[in-house]
Design a protein around this nucleic acid. Structure first.
Length: 411
DNA sequence: CGTCCACTGGAATCAAGGGTCT
DNA sequence: AGACCCTTGATTCCAGTGGACG
């Protein structure tokens, strides 16, 4: 028995309604992937020869977020390891290009999964790409097996950095004598291949598999499949799963969102001390998720970006008219002046606005006013909570403390 | 129908800051 | 220590461009 501490009372009164939290994580790989057996079989059929040291075709997997692409690949990876426990014939490597989206980052990540000897690992910065390429090639060839490399969210990295890595990976087989590499690219952008150079395009897309979005019924099955193990009988009100499924089906059948929704709903119920999860919890969870997503993004913004955003907010508060890039820039310079921050060029600010637009924090569309020029019409599209968060940011304390000499109090 | 404004989009380039290697 | 390497954010330059106005 441990001594009591400040956590004991919490631990004792805590009511637990989720038996096993990790089952509800979207990263968890269930024993059984409902409505995806057909896709699994398609991939297995292509990949299977690797167990006999034959190189499988490269595969390009296309499908919207939350359609099970990653889950299927992880599942296959798990099975592949079961079939070849010592990885004598084939090694399965999974790299998510979204987390690390620089060429070096991807290569670093990938290489260190491939390279097992600790003293041969690649340092996380400092080397030239060429050097990694050649070390990696050498290492791979020395091990005489099939490497299956899964590149998740492949389009992310590509858009930013061109196709160097993919060129390397798709042509590496020409240099290899003993080992072979086969690539499985995962993308949620159906038009991804358009950007590729013809050579890479044909290599990468030797086989294409398309993952359609889930419909409501399928989403329900997926949720029930997990809920079965995560909750005791009767903890979920009967309408909870259908509600989660319905909400997520509206968002392009995203199973990850559906799971998040269920997990967070349960979390909230738990923290409230409720014995059951109800649709009210789900509504609350949906709200929380949306808010968290935006505030997470805001936290990672540069000070400059935040300043631009603040400028947009203030512009909107001054008058509700739609604003232009010029308006935002003027106000932006004004803010910079007060908080003593060097101001960027208009060009750069216009760029930052476009970035904020892509993140969905502001809404901007190009509009032409004929002779009066062409500009972006910018609207703010964030809830109050976020606005307050920006205003409360440390960087702007000085700004809000500052009172222009002529200013009269505004209520 | 052409002009011409006030930006946009893209590309090339720089500087600073992380690091390794010899 | 000095030579290199990669990444990121910012700067600079320049060629468009949609459409209201004349």
């Amino acid at each position: 028995m441990t001594e009591s501490n400040i956590f004991t009372q919490y631990m004792q009164k805590r009511n637990v309604i989720v038996k096993d939290k990790k089952i509800l994580q979207s990263s968890y790989i269930p024993e059984n992937l409902p409505h995806r057996m057909d896709k699994i079989n398609e991939v297995v059929e292509i990949v299977a020869p690797s167990l006999n040291k034959d190189k499988p075709s490269n595969i390009l997997i296309i499908g919207k977020t939350g359609t099970g692409k990653t889950a299927v690949m992880n599942y296959i990876g798990k099975e592949l390891r079961k079939a070849d426990p010592n990885q004598d014939n084939c090694a399965f490597i999974y790299v998510n290009c979204e987390v690390v989206d620089t060429p070096y980052g991807i290569l670093y990540n990938m290489s260190n999964q491939i390279i097992e000897e600790p003293n041969m690992k690649i340092p996380f910065t400092g080397w030239s790409l060429d050097r990694i390429f050649s070390e990696l090639t050498k290492y791979i060839d020395a091990h005489d097996k099939i490497y299956i490399i899964v590149l998740d969210e492949i389009d992310r990295s590509f858009q930013k950095n061109g196709d160097d890595i993919f060129y390397f990976l798709t042509t590496i087989n020409e240099v290899l004598k003993y080992s072979k590499v086969s690539i499985i690219g995962i993308t949620n952008n159906a038009k991804f291949t358009e950007f590729l150079s013809p050579k890479i395009k044909s290599r990468l897309g030797e086989e294409k598999i398309i993952f359609p979005p889930y419909n409501v019924v399928q989403l329900q099955d997926i949720l029930y499949e997990r809920a079965k193990f995560a909750f005791d009988e009767g903890v979920l009100e009967p309408d909870v799963v259908p509600y989660c499924a319905a909400l997520s089906a509206q968002e392009m059948g995203d199973a990850r969102k559906a799971l998040d929704l269920l997990r967070i709903s349960a979390d909230i119920a738990e923290r409230n001390g409720d014995k059951k999860v109800t649709s009210a919890h789900v509504r609350y969870a949906k709200n929380k998720i949306e808010l968290d997503a935006v505030s997470e993004i805001i936290k990672t913004l540069t000070i400059q970006s935040k300043t631009v955003l603040l400028s947009v907010i203030l512009n909107k508060e001054d008058d509700n008219e739609p604003m232009t890039t010029g308006d935002v820039f003027t106000k932006y310079k004004y803010i910079c002046d007060i908080i003593g921050q060097s101001a960027l060029t208009q060009r750069r600010v216009a760029g930052l606005i476009s970035e904020l637009d892509m993140l969905g924090i502001v809404h901007a569309r190009v509009k032409s006013f004929g002779r009066a020029g062409r500009t972006k019409e910018i609207e703010l599209s964030t809830p109050k909570e976020i606005v307050n968060m920006i205003k409360g940011d440390d960087a702007f304390i000085d700004f809000f403390a500052y009172k222009p000499p002529t200013q009269t109090t505004i209520c």
